[in-house]
Structures are given as structure tokens and as C-alpha cells.
């Protein structure tokens, strides 16, 4: 039976709830789960002050309510599944290494920062810094997948090193800024300064985009490896058009102010 958490009191200031995590909740009874410590602003409060707990933990946690002000859900999780029926606050899935988080609504900034593994699916939009490194960190996301069905804001995949970020809508500015490796796929449009400072890695976009002058056009070709990504995305419920699968892409290499080993692939079909 799934553990159900229902928000009964909306936090007035951000509530840090990194205790909402399968790793922290396994082997606890309902009383112990209710007593788990959260931070409401700078005050320690038990989880039960904000959430009604029911059911039984079997590896899955369902959360209900408007969680815009609830931070760090699923931080450092390594297994299990969290489903959020609504919107969610910042730092969801921070540094997670396994398991799955599904958000039915929108997510705020910092989705999956510095994550190592697992999958985060946002059915709505997400904010800035999806899959990024924290300010001052030299390495961001190091594995796993972040799938956003809607749009994202700026600096998606900042200093990302491994893993996959997919944006079914549009992405903001500085997509893949200072990227070290990994893959970002944007099925909508990208903002400006895509891939600025990237060393390695792939940024793939379904639409044309104006790139920085430090990127050089290599060729038009049919990147076969994309079919594997597209097949994978279809298995995750995203709709990929046949034209995208069968069309050539422009390959741009850069950023020449860095290693020049990164690539931006822009759809070149009609």
C-alpha cells in the first residue's frame, strides 16, 4: 500500500522537507513518519504539522496539495517513487541517485540539481536551473533523466556532466551553459546563448536557433543515435513526429572558447 501525504496547512514561508524521501521513510511507522523533522523557515517542526499521513510505505509516496512552498522533496533519494499531484517547490530531487519522481503540475527552479541517477518527470513547466550545479559547483547533473513536458526557464543543464534532460516545450536562455557532457533535447525553441562555454556534450533542438559566433557549422547529416533517444522518449509518453526521426540535422561544434568538443544539432528538415 502506498504512503499518502496530504497537505493540510499551507506553509507561509518555505518548508524544507527533505525528509519526504523513500530512503528516510522506509522502515518507519506512521507515528515516526509524522514526527520527521522539517524546517518551516528557521523553525524545526514535525511533518505532521503540515501533512496528513495515511497508508503504508511500500516504496511509493503519493503527495497531494499545492506544494509550491515545499522544498527539497526527494532530495538524495536512491530508490522508490514519489508522485506529486500538483505543483512543487524548489530543489525537487536534489542530488538523487535513483528512483523516480513524477510531478503532475509545475515545478519551481532547481529541478534535480546535481542529481546522479533516477528520473524526474515534470508534466507541466519547470523554472530556472533544471539539472544544474549549485552556484560555485564545477559539476552539475551527473546522471539520470529529467523529462519536462512543458517549458523551462534559463540555464538548463548548467555544468551538466552526464545524463539526459528533455524539454518538450521551449527552453530559456543559456541552455547547456558551461556544459561538460551529457545530452539536452529541446523539442520547442531555445532562447539565446545556447551552449555558451560548453566543453563537451550534445544539445539537440527541433527548431533553428541563432548560435554564438564561437560555434562552427560542421555539416548536415542524419544522426542515427537520435533515433535511440526518440524511441526512448516515445516509450516515456512524449510524441515524436516521424519527420523529426527521418530528417537531417545541422551539426555545430563549439564552444571554441573552451574545448570545442561540444555539439549543437539543429533540425534541418523542411
Amino acid at each position: 500500500m502506498t504512503l499518502k501525504l496530504k497537505l493540510h496547512t499551507k506553509p507561509e514561508v518555505p518548508l524544507e522537507a527533505d525528509c519526504i524521501c523513500p530512503d528516510r521513510m522506509q522502515s518507519l511507522n506512521m507515528t515516526e513518519i509524522g514526527d520527521l523533522v522539517t524546517y518551516h523557515g528557521n523553525r524545526q517542526v514535525p511533518l505532521k504539522n503540515f501533512f496528513e499521513c495515511s497508508g503504508e510505505f511500500d516504496g511509493e509516496i503519493d503527495i497531494e496539495g499545492d506544494l509550491v512552498n515545499v522544498k527539497h522533496i526527494g532530495s538524495t533519494m536512491s530508490f522508490g517513487k514519489i508522485t506529486v499531484s500538483g505543483n512543487v517547490g524548489v530543489h525537487i530531487g536534489a542530488a538523487m541517485s535513483g528512483g523516480e519522481i513524477i510531478v503532475e503540475g509545475d515545478a519551481s527552479d532547481w529541478v534535480g540539481p546535481e542529481m546522479y541517477g533516477g528520473r524526474i518527470t515534470i508534466k507541466g513547466n519547470a523554472g530556472h536551473m533544471v539539472g544544474s550545479g549549485y552556484r560555485g559547483s564545477t559539476v552539475g547533473m551527473q546522471g539520470g533523466e529529467i523529462i519536462v513536458h512543458g517549458n523551462v526557464k534559463n540555464e538548463t543543464g548548467h555544468v551538466m556532466r552526464r545524463g539526459l534532460i528533455v524539454v518538450a516545450g521551449n527552453s530559456g536562455d543559456f541552455t547547456g551553459v558551461n556544459m561538460l557532457a551529457g545530452t539536452i533535447i529541446v523539442l520547442g525553441e531555445m532562447g539565446i546563448r545556447t551552449g555558451a562555454g560548453m566543453r563537451r556534450g550534445s544539445i539537440i533542438c527541433q527548431t533553428k536557433s541563432e548560435l554564438l559566433p564561437t560555434f562552427t557549422r560542421s555539416c548536415d547529416y542524419l544522426p542515427l543515435f537520435l533515433r535511440h533517444y526518440f524511441k526512448h522518449l516515445e516509450s516515456l509518453g512524449l510524441i515524436i513526429s516521424d519527420s523529426l526521426i527521418n530528417s537531417p540535422f545541422e551539426r555545430w561544434c563549439g564552444d571554441s572558447i573552451e574545448l570545442n568538443r561540444g555539439e549543437i544539432l539543429l533540425y534541418a528538415g523542411k
Partner: peptide, 10 residues
């Protein structure tokens, strides 16, 4: 270039 797609490395 290596890519890990759905757990498989190419």
C-alpha cells in the same frame, strides 16, 4: 562520443 540511452551505452 559516448551516449547512455535508457541504461545502454553507445
Amino acid at each position: 562520443i559516448s551516449k547512455v540511452i535508457d541504461g545502454l551505452k553507445l
